[in-house]
Structures are given as C-alpha cells and as structure tokens.
C-alpha cells in the first residue's frame, strides 16, 4: 500500500497473512498515530496489545520447516529446526486500527522498545486507549508517557511485577489467607 509511505517515522511496512503491519519509530509514535487518524481515516482503535520477546529466537525443539515456516501442503518438509527471525527489541506494542467506513481497512501500528523505555500515550487521539494502555502497563510493564491515569487496571494496586512478562514466574505468586503468611 503506497498510502502508508507518508506515515511519520515509518521504518517498514510488512504484509503477511493478509494483514498490514506498520512499524514506526518509538519516538514518533504519536505523530504516526495522529497521521493515521486524520489523514488516512483510522478512526477506531480496536485493540492495544503488548508482547514480550525475551528469549525469542531460540531454537524451537523438534520443529520442522524453514525460516518462513513449514508449508503444510508439502508433506514431510523436513528442514532445519526453525529459528524465528530476531526481533529488534524486547517489547512490541501493537495498535490494531480500523477505518470504520464503507470500505473498512485494518492496519497494525507497531513500535518496539526495551525495558525502561517509554512510548507516548495515544489517549488524546483515541480515548479508547485509556484502559487499553493501562492494561498493557499493568500486565507487561510498558510505560505510556503522558497517560492521564497511569495505574493498574486488572491486577491489585499493590501487586509487584508484571505478569505477562516472560521472566515472571508461573505459580510463584503467594497464596493469600493460607495461614502461612
């Protein structure tokens, strides 16, 4: 799609599985979001999802295929073990945008950041982002600079750690009211 070339801070456009991903510079996310809403008509923010890629790209045990994945229609494509393509940074934040009109278009606006880095909030652009960004902060620990109410939304306010991070243990949480405190 040529229309995306003008998006501020655009790093790359990925077309895969019928979906378009626009990767933008972290510092210019706000500009890119504003451009997408005002110039390209993405008036609806469907979802904000964070993902932690800590440990990504290790060899996936016993997997068959190529870097592009296995072609299911060719039986027994026994290739080298699949090694997923490395990711630029530890975290990704994906904004799933929708142009709510007669010819609807969906696009994924994505930015990458490391632990300790911040990304600008888009609450002023799409009010939907209020709770969606709080959720990403709560579960993934990504800080949205300028968010009007940057507190947890799903976990208790005094919770330590961010559960959806890959280094957050499973089963390590204390059992409350168990008599062992």
């Amino acid at each position: 799609m040529s229309g995306y070339k003008q998006v501020p801070g655009l790093l790359e456009v990925n077309e895969a599985l019928g979906e378009t991903t626009l990767v933008v510079e972290r510092e210019r996310l706000g500009e890119a979001a504003l451009y997408l809403r005002d110039e390209l008509g993405f008036n609806y923010l469907a979802d904000v999802a964070g993902a932690d890629y800590l440990g990504w790209g290790g060899e996936v045990a016993g997997s068959w295929g190529s870097a592009e994945g296995r072609d299911l229609n060719v039986p027994y494509t026994l290739g080298p073990s699949l090694v997923a393509k490395p990711k630029p940074k530890r975290f990704s934040v994906s904004y799933h945008l929708l142009a709510l009109r007669d010819d609807p278009v969906r696009v994924r606006l994505q930015t990458w950041l490391d632990d300790g880095e911040e990304v600008a909030t888009v609450v002023e652009i799409w009010p939907t982002a209020d709770w969606l960004e709080r959720e990403v902060y709560d579960l993934m620990g990504i800080v949205f600079a300028g968010h009007p109410n940057p507190v947890r939304v799903l976990m208790p306010e005094d919770w330590e750690g961010h559960p959806l991070r890959k280094d957050y243990p499973i089963g390590g949480e204390p059992v409350r009211f168990s008599g062992e405190e």
């Binding site: 599985l17 469907a46 997997s63 068959w64 994945g69 296995r70 699949l82 393509k85 994924r108």
Partner: peptide
C-alpha cells in the same frame, strides 16, 4: 502440532 511463526489479529 506446530504453528508457523507470525502474528495475526482476527476479529
């Protein structure tokens, strides 16, 4: 089973 690498959003 194994699922090829990638990311999707289905609504």
């Amino acid at each position: 089973y194994r699922v090829p690498a990638g990311e999707v959003y289905v609504a």
